[in-house]
């Protein structure tokens, strides 16, 4: 049985019939076997990726969750209701929203303003600045956190939400600026030239003509920054000290430290509540830009 399905038992016939069709079957000699093998390998890899993910989903609805993935014997939403209290979940999620939306807004505003002259005028300043920005996209931010901490102590910005928002905005800015400039470059200049001859200023054309045309691009940049900030653990972990200011990433870590070794179900439920918004946003951003590859494409340049 297995031998016949993997290796063709009658070699003469398929070759005779296959010859004229050869250019169509470009995958490999014995395309069906190759396809089967490719699919099998993919299914195995997919299962390896599924197991850790599946644990979060299944443990969150399991009344007796353990660290091992398994179908729950009794479905329950008790884990969710146990963590859905103001101080446990809602305040940290609100803080996370404040941090992410705040840094998203600051980043988008700063990068739109900066991208306009960089995209529209050919200046001697452009090239060194763009190189510096590109360099900034590459800097390992986690490497900076110790000096950032002592700098924030000096500037009296430690445990300050605005300070953290501006820092996160600044770290996201190089990439956002790069993306925004690329989106702006694709808006044709001819439309603005008409407005300029009518006497409109650069800022007016930016607001009235360029921005409406690149609305999806701006949404992509905002969501990109938002997702990054929402998932950022290390920056608020170092810069925000009082629990009532900390976002979900930090409070979920505190929960893990306190109850992580007993209340697996609740940890998983909290993880779900915290992760769902960014998964939704990711789906939205892939719709906005037509394909799921947009973020990688934007990063790739």
């Amino acid at each position: 049985m297995t031998a016949t399905s993997t290796a063709p038992a009658t070699p003469a016939a398929p070759i005779d019939r296959g010859r004229p069709r050869r250019p169509a079957a470009l995958v490999a000699p014995g395309p069906r076997a190759t396809r089967l093998a490719a699919n099998l390998v993919l299914v195995v890899v997919g299962l390896c990726f599924l197991l850790p993910l599946g644990w979060i989903v299944l443990a969150s609805v399991d009344a007796q969750a353990t660290l091992t993935v398994g179908l729950p014997e009794a479905l329950t939403f008790a884990n969710f209701s146990a963590v859905m209290t103001p101080e446990q979940t809602w305040v940290p999620l609100a803080n996370a929203f404040l941090l992410s939306a705040g840094s998203g807004l600051v980043t988008v505003l700063a990068s739109v303003l900066a991208a306009y002259p960089l995209s529209r005028y050919r200046m001697r300043f452009n090239k060194p600045f763009l190189y510096a920005v590109l360099f900034g996209t590459c800097l390992p931010i986690t490497a900076m956190m110790v000096p950032v901490y002592s700098l924030f102590v000096r500037l009296n910005l430690l445990d300050s939400l605005p300070g953290t928002i501006f820092f996160m905005a600044a770290t996201a800015l190089p990439m956002a600026l790069w993306m925004t400039k690329n989106f702006m470059d694709s808006v044709p200049v001819s439309l603005e030239e008409a407005a300029w001859t009518d006497g409109a200023s650069a800022m007016t054309t930016l607001r009235r003509i360029v921005l409406p045309l690149m609305r999806p691009g701006i949404a992509v940049v905002f969501i990109f920054v938002f997702i990054q900030a929402w998932g950022n653990f290390f920056v608020p972990f170092v810069l925000l000290l009082s629990p009532e200011k900390q976002p979900a990433a930090v409070s979920i870590f505190a929960f893990f430290g306190q109850y992580g070794s007993v209340a697996y179900g609740q940890l998983a439920a909290y993880s779900m509540l915290y992760a769902l918004p960014v998964i939704g946003l990711y789906v939205l951003v892939s719709r906005l830009s037509g394909s799921g590859f947009s973020l990688a494409g934007a990063v790739k340049g």
């Binding site: 997919g46 990726f49 998932g231 915290y274 992760a275």
Partner: peptide, 26 residues
């Protein structure tokens, strides 16, 4: 599935990996 592991917030991915590799894990 592959993209889901990447989209998840890093700390949630870390919990999932912790549970997977734990002595009593998957």
């Amino acid at each position: 599935l592959v993209v889901a592991a990447w989209v998840l917030p890093e700390i949630v991915a870390a919990f999932a990996a912790y549970a997977f590799f734990h002595a009593d894990g998957t």
